[in-house]
């Protein structure tokens, strides 16, 4: 629709993990077994563009590849195939200072702040280390800079001599955010960043994310299994199922009229604060194993509309209305 270069673009990005055989299986093979290394297509040919200043929510069941996709975007994992573009530049072509620059511009915030913060470092070191190493701030100004970062996330700088374990979960998440902000990023990948927090603290941290976005024109890829949170925060929502994007749409339209049968089923399951007692009518079946995904459309064993073609042919992600994409054969019928 617009000509502006997206801040992040993924072209046919796939990420495969090989699970090597364990010792027991290798012994079985010596004895004539035929076990092989297993390959997981954690992310399977994903195309996605994210505009500057946009908040994109990424949703899907456990194991569908959300974190892996987030890690590829943040440069923590390299894509197995396909390409990742930052402001129009293929990041795999960058080296040296230019590559480092992109690396800093895209930061990741994790679910469990305890395991992502070094327990032996004081808060001031955690927040001040990267900007100093990368020469973002002069040594003499570091202390003031750290104070500024802490204030920005709503922490009192008098606590900066403390260690992570001396803070509550919500405060630790703020430390993680301060650390990410300290290198002046313009893109944050938030992976279940509020999932471990209590409801009342979750609201505080979500408000912080929204404020930071407004103050610094940040772009977010917001990964969450909590559809209520995603609906509140995102401009656009992307739904994944077993490594593939099955639907992408502006938030309001997606929640009002989901197109893909999986999205429809998922939205029907979301527990809501409606006061009426409801009868639960769940999607049938388990989440299939990503090691051995169903043929054709991965969703076909659970889909109430599955037909012959669904087993045989992978549905392509197609634009079904301006800005709305869905990968389902039903859209071809009309």
């Amino acid at each position: 629709m617009t000509a502006a270069t997206p801040i992040v673009e993924m072209k046919d990005v796939s990420k495969r993990f090989v699970r090597r055989l364990d010792l027991a299986s290798r012994i079985v093979n010596r004895l004539g077994g035929t076990l092989r290394d297993e390959v997981v297509h954690a992310v399977d040919t994903v195309n996605m563009t994210i505009a500057e200043g946009e908040v994109v929510g990424l949703v899907g069941e456990s194991g569908c590849g959300k974190s892996t996709l987030g890690r590829v975007v943040a440069g923590i994992h390299e894509a197995s195939s396909g390409s990742l573009h930052y402001k129009g530049v293929d990041v795999s072509t960058l080296t040296g200072a230019a590559a480092r620059e992109v690396q800093l511009k895209v930061q990741m915030i994790f679910q469990d702040p305890m395991s992502s913060l070094n327990p032996r470092l004081r808060v001031e070191q955690i927040v001040g280390e990267a900007p100093q190493v990368h020469g973002i701030v002069a040594r003499g100004e570091l202390s003031d800079y750290v104070d500024e970062m802490l204030l920005r996330v709503g922490l009192d700088p008098i606590y900066k001599k403390r260690y992570p374990h001396q803070f509550s979960g919500g405060q630790r998440q703020r430390i993680g955010i301060a650390r990410a902000l300290s290198v002046k990023p313009d893109f944050l990948v938030c992976d279940e960043a509020v999932a471990a927090l209590d409801v009342s603290i979750q609201a505080q941290v979500l408000n912080l994310f929204m404020k930071l976005r407004a103050d610094f024109n940040l772009t977010y890829l917001f990964i969450s299994h909590d559809l209520g949170v995603v609906e509140h925060l995102s401009d656009r929502v992307v739904i994944m199922y077993l490594g593939r994007v099955v639907e992408s749409a502006p938030t309001g339209e997606l929640f009002e009229a989901p197109n893909h049968p999986y999205t429809q089923a998922l939205l029907a399951e979301v527990p809501r604060l409606e006061s009426q007692r409801r009868v639960f009518v769940p999607i049938k079946g388990e989440i299939p194993s990503p090691l051995n995904p169903p043929s054709g459309c991965h969703f076909h064993p659970r889909c109430p509309h599955a037909h012959a073609r669904c087993k045989a042919e992978v549905p392509a992600l197609k634009e079904i209305a301006p800005g709305r994409f869905s990968a389902c054969h039903l859209n071809d019928a009309a």
Binding site: D198, S200, M210, H232, L233, T251
Partner: peptide
């Protein structure tokens, strides 16, 4: 009241959530 008010779906989309200050 604070807890229910802080649930995202109880707030207009994109607006700051009602929040309870401090922690338990």
């Amino acid at each position: 009241k604070g807890l229910i008010g802080s649930v995202p779906s109880r707030n207009p989309r994109g607006q700051p959530l009602t929040q309870i200050p401090g922690m338990a």
